[in-house]
Design a protein around this nucleic acid. Structure first.
Lengths: 212, 212
DNA sequence: TTCTAGACCGACAGTCGGTTTGTAATGGAG
DNA sequence: CTCCATTACAAACCGACTGTCGGTCTAGAA
């Protein structure tokens, strides 16, 4: 059962790649299943054999993109850095990555509406949001009580800037503004223990590459 | 030409109200034009006479909701308050208003995807975003250079919390966290001039109720 | 009274997402 | 080697949806 499985996985991946491009170029609504079929030279039956529906296809694309992002950000942050440093580096890396139209359109714009906000956040918690929350906790800059909420606000703010930069192109200015923003947040209250050391596990992804 | 015009405006408003409810309950994609037609007991032709298409109908709904929000927030903020106070009051008012499913779904979740991010921001600049930016400038807490970007981040953060509160219901905790968040931002660098006085015009909406 | 413009109607075409039925081929069981 | 379950894929088909278009009706101007 090898040749068959391999062929199946290959076409699945091919469809995934094509769908990623189409979704990012035309949005979820603007991309028809028939476009995907045409570009992948596949039949309806074949596609629906691999993916339960258009939304499931989108979700698979979303997961793949998120996983890739997580890897790239984790690779950017210098290991052994302080949590504050990691937070800064990670945020800037994220903003630069989000220059990619694929990420903008799929992850930031369409996902909440297509997947629903709750599912979006649930998935993000396993990727970018989870990473940010662990790093923010390691800085010990915010009380545990507010950690979740501050992490939400911070991620939303950074995502917004990612979109803003992508449109205006004021990269340097935005990056300085984000650093300023972060500095203000981190310099708030400090419970005393001093800057926390960042364990490698704080950045590690929790999930295996999903295959649904 | 009065009776006719009035009748026209009346049915337009009626359709707008019905569409607002349906869009907020089932989302943009989950709401069919036929649903709107059925509930409003109108014909296809009549609806397409008033609105160019489904997206135009959505945009009209969006504008109406934004205008209402702007009025309600402006009414909440105590007049003559300091800019810092106004920022806090306005933010909390916004979070509470966003408990409304209508606002969540239409303004925060579906709008970016349906209208496109650019148009969304362009419209928001005339409503919530514009208000926030003017108030933030009045606090003189951020350098003019970063004002636009910080305002974007702040609004995105607050919007996120509005959605979060709506799901988890931890209203008090979130409100305290937001106040903490704001305090940290405002306590950053201060160019010296002291707290700015908030002119009434800073909160005023710029636009007349749109009718497109 | 006549005529025009705007409100409204309803059938229709085209497209889309999804289902169903069918076929070819692979690989393990006997 | 044979048989059969399973998997990958194909194609016709269905219901639902959006948007268009020719046409009707009526209020109010001329």
């Amino acid at each position: 059962m090898n040749l068959k499985a391999e062929r199946g996985a290959a076409t699945r991946d091919r469809v995934l790649g094509i769908a990623t491009r189409l979704f990012s170029e035309h949005g979820y609504d603007g991309t028809s299943i028939e476009m995907v079929l045409h570009e992948s030279a596949l039949s309806r039956g074949a596609l629906y054999h691999h993916f339960a529906g258009k939304d499931a296809l989108f979700e698979a694309v979303f997961e793949a993109v998120e996983t890739r992002i997580g890897r790239e950000i984790a690779a950017t942050v210098t290991s052994g850095a302080s949590a504050e440093q990691a937070l800064r580096e990670g945020s800037l890396a994220w903003i630069r990555l989000a220059g990619d139209k694929v990420i903008q359109r799929i992850v930031l714009i369409d996902a909440p509406s297509v997947l629903g906000w709750e599912k979006w956040r649930e998935l993000e918690a396993r990727h970018a949001f989870g990473m940010l929350k662990r790093t923010l906790r390691a800085t010990r800059a915010v009380r545990e009580e507010y950690l979740e909420i501050h992490a939400h606000m911070l991620l939303a703010a950074i995502n917004e800037i990612a979109l803003l930069v992508a449109r205006t192109g004021q990269t340097e200015q935005a990056e300085r503004a984000v650093e300023d923003f972060l500095a203000r947040l981190l310099d708030g209250e400090r419970p005393g223990q001093g800057p926390g050391a960042l364990a490698a596990s704080d950045l590690a992804e929790r999930d295996a590459p999903t295959t649904t």
